[in-house]
Amino acid sequence: MDNRYITSQGDTWDMISYKVYGNEKYVDKLIQANLHYKEVIIFSANVKLNIPEANLINESKLPPWKRGVQ
């Protein structure tokens, strides 16, 4: 499920990631979905960006062997 995000003046990749996913770590996912804007650092208003679905993982503070991850 892809969505759209319309930028506000002054938005940056990390701000957009935080707004749509609640975490700045998805910047790479956003840029990959919007390669024609990859050189933009600060957006102007009304730029339409594709927002891919993030497979948000419930991150645990437990080490992998206690989470059942191998």
Rank of each mutant, 00 (worst) to 15 (best):
M1F: 12
D2L: 12
N3T: 15
R4G: 09
Y5S: 09
I6L: 14
S8Q: 14
Q9G: 07
D14A: 07
M15H: 07
I16N: 02
I16T: 03
I16M: 03
S17K: 05
S17A: 15
S17I: 02
S17H: 07
S17W: 05
Y18D: 13
Y18N: 13
K19I: 10
K19N: 14
K19W: 09
Y21R: 02
Y21G: 02
Y21E: 02
Y21N: 02
G22Y: 08
G22C: 08
N23L: 04
E24N: 11
K25N: 15
Y26C: 00
Y26H: 07
V27D: 01
L30A: 03
A33Y: 04
A33F: 05
A33M: 05
H36Y: 10
H36T: 13
V40W: 00
V40G: 00
I41E: 15
I42G: 01
I42F: 10
F43L: 00
S44H: 10
N46Y: 13
V47W: 02
V47G: 02
V47N: 11
V47D: 06
L49D: 00
I51Y: 02
P52V: 04
E53M: 08
N55W: 02
N55S: 12
L56D: 09
I57H: 08
I57G: 04
N58P: 05
N58W: 04
S60D: 14
S60Q: 08
S60W: 03
K61C: 09
K61F: 11
K61H: 14
K61D: 15
L62D: 11
P63C: 04
K66H: 07
K66A: 15
R67P: 05
R67C: 11
R67V: 09
G68H: 06
V69C: 06
V69N: 13
Q70T: 10
Q70I: 11
Q70L: 10
Q70N: 14
